[in-house]
Amino acid sequence: MPSIMPFNRDQVLTEINDLLSKHGFDTSNIYDRSCFDLVARRELLLLLMKVLVNVDGFSIAHAEEIKRVAQIFLASPILIGLKSKNEVLEEDVVYERHGIPVISPTTLRNIVVEEIYPEIFADRGGYYVQIDGQIIKNVREEQNLSLKDLADQAHVSRETIYKYETGRVRAQPETAFLLESILDMKITLSVNLFQAPRHEKTHESREGEPRELVDLGFGVINTNRTPFDALAQPETKKSERLKKAEPLITDLEKNRNNKALTRMALNLKDLSDVIGTESVFILEKKKDVDCIDGVPVVHNWEIGEMKNPAEFLKMLAERRECN
């Protein structure tokens, strides 16, 4: 299969979508004006992907928003880029922008098609690899080599070998590959870009909109650079922490007309299908409508009559299969 050729952003997006679709991923529509362009899922793996020609155009605001969304859905955010300044991004090297990993389209292809994960990552000062210090120590001791013996063969200091073994420093690729040759053992660690990020407690906003959901007992996070308006998640009591409370993708009325709401419903349905979560419209005006193009609708006045999130979720389930 030919590799993805970096002609322009739209073409790269299309080829990435085709690549993922052919290798078992369900993919979303493409969202150009969002902190992510494409969402892809394969079993438990969920990717939030942004594609840029020049990765230096990736803003802090977009990075922070995609990180928040990724944390809530336990997704992996990835920036796909063609170049940085005037330099083409190298194959099988991981870069970074504002805490988001950056790779080239060819690197993505190698991961998806060949299951070859990159080992080298770029940072200030050059290229580095992460090494398994425990393996170095174990093999060194098995071969009856002292720290100084190994250091002399690798042309580094004894202190450097000690720092490698204790995981205190990264290694330059040349040094790591020389150590592998000396020890006759693989010591470099691959960068698993598809590993789900550690789940840290998200601080749900108590000032978010819609206020009715907040008052009912939902944590609400408003978003500015996504195809939806907010994420809402039922806040569970300590005794209920073992119960899974899935986040909801939410759009608000905001004086939008029916045509705009219908267009937004396509996005909500598309994203909820790929992500595997619920979507809902929260409408302010009293309209005789229970759903918009397959997306359930709940009105503010209905939420005001509810006692807890369970009642809201029950209504959502009742209206989920509407036509």
Score class of each variant (00 low, 15 high):
N138K: 13
L47V: 09
E174L: 08
R319G: 01
E209F: 06
T262I: 03
G125F: 08
I116Y: 11
S181A: 11
K67Y: 05
G208P: 08
G219C: 10
L179C: 00
A40V: 03
N257V: 04
G219S: 11
P234F: 05
E207W: 10
K67W: 02
G208T: 09
T175F: 05
R241T: 03
R41Q: 15
P173Q: 04
S181R: 10
K259Q: 14
E305N: 14
T106R: 15
E253V: 05
G57N: 12
S181G: 07
I111H: 03
V88R: 15
M264V: 00
L268V: 03
Y164K: 10
G81R: 05
N29K: 14
V53G: 01
S205A: 12
Q11W: 14
T166P: 00
M306I: 05
Y31R: 04
N17L: 05
R320M: 02
D152S: 13
G125K: 13
R168T: 02
I303E: 01
P6C: 08
R41M: 13
S3L: 10
E115K: 14
I120T: 09
G276E: 04
P101H: 10
R198P: 08
E204A: 15
L216R: 05
K85N: 13
D152C: 03
R41K: 15
G276N: 04
Q71S: 13
L213W: 06
R263P: 00
L79V: 07
S146W: 10
E311C: 08
L38D: 01
K83Y: 12
K307T: 14
S239F: 05
A310P: 00
W301R: 09
E246F: 09
K314I: 03
L271M: 01
N192W: 09
N308I: 06
I275C: 06
M1I: 09
Q11T: 14
L147I: 13
K244Q: 04
E90S: 14
S272I: 03
N110D: 13
D251H: 03
Q153T: 07
P227L: 02
D123R: 07
I78G: 00
T166C: 00
C291R: 08
A154Q: 03
I131D: 01
V298G: 01
K314M: 07
H203W: 07
K148V: 11
A61E: 10
W301F: 13
C291G: 11
D215E: 15
E284D: 14
A61N: 11
D229M: 04
E114P: 00
I111C: 04
L38N: 03
T262D: 05
E318I: 10
I292W: 01
D215F: 15
G294W: 02
I221M: 11
P210D: 07
K287Q: 12
T160E: 05
R41L: 11
N54P: 07
D10T: 13
I249D: 00
C35F: 02
R33A: 07
P227R: 02
E321K: 15
T14C: 08
N144G: 07
I135S: 08
A317G: 04
R9N: 12
Q153E: 09
L74G: 14
D288S: 09
T188N: 06
N54S: 15
V51E: 01
L20F: 06
L48N: 02
S239N: 06
